[in-house]
Simulated assay, not measured.
Amino acid sequence: MNVTVRLAQQPEADALLGRSPLAVLVGMLLDQQVPMEWAFSGPYSIAHRMGGDDLDAHAIAAQDPEAFAALLSEKPAVHRYPGSMAKRIQQLCAYLVHEYDGDAEALWRDAGSGRELLRRLQALPGYGKQKAQILTALLGKQYGVTPDGWREAAGAYGDDGSRRSVADITGPETLAEVRAFKQEAKAAAKAAGPQGKTGTKAGPKAKKTT
Rank of each mutant, 00 (worst) to 15 (best):
G18C: 00
L92D: 02
I134V: 15
D110Y: 10
M36Q: 15
L29H: 02
D101V: 10
A156T: 11
R151F: 10
G199Q: 05
A188E: 13
E152R: 15
R120N: 03
E74K: 10
E152A: 15
L135Q: 08
S73T: 06
W150M: 03
G42T: 06
T146I: 11
R88S: 12
P82D: 09
A47F: 03
Y143D: 12
K197R: 15
A8M: 00
I46D: 06
A13P: 04
G171W: 02
R179A: 15
P43H: 07
V97N: 01
A77N: 05
E66I: 03
P172H: 10
I60Y: 04
T4I: 11
V34L: 11
A192Y: 06
G158R: 01
R49D: 10
V178T: 09
A180N: 07
V78C: 12
S162R: 10
D53A: 09
G126V: 11
S162N: 13
G83L: 07
D56K: 01
I89N: 02
K141R: 15
G102Y: 11
M1S: 13
E74A: 13
L30A: 09
D14T: 05
L92Y: 01
A94I: 12
V34S: 03
E37A: 15
G114H: 01
A94R: 13
A23Q: 09
A57F: 02
P194S: 05
A185L: 04
V34D: 01
A191F: 11
G102C: 04
I169F: 05
A47W: 01
G83K: 06
A188S: 02
P76C: 05
A62L: 09
A86P: 06
T136L: 04
L92T: 06
K87W: 08
Q32D: 06
A23M: 14
Q183R: 09
I169W: 06
L96C: 00
G128A: 14
Q9E: 14
H48K: 15
L135A: 06
Y100N: 07
L121F: 07
G155C: 13
R115T: 14
V26P: 01
D110F: 04
G171Y: 02
L118R: 03
A187T: 06
A39Y: 08
T200L: 05
A176E: 08
L17M: 04
L92N: 00
G126A: 14
G144W: 14
V97S: 03
P11K: 07
L71A: 13
Q133A: 08
A176L: 00
Q63V: 01
L22M: 11
R179W: 12
L22P: 00
D31G: 09
T170C: 06
Q63D: 03
A191S: 08
D160K: 14
G149V: 02
P125A: 07
T174E: 11
G171I: 12
V145E: 00
F40G: 01
P194T: 01
I89Y: 00
A111H: 04
L138D: 07
W150A: 07
V24Y: 00
Y95S: 13
D56S: 12
K197M: 15
G112V: 13
L25V: 00
Q32L: 08
L118A: 04
A39C: 07
A15K: 12
R151Y: 09
L7G: 00
Y143A: 12
R151V: 11
S165Q: 04
P43I: 08
A202S: 14
L17T: 06
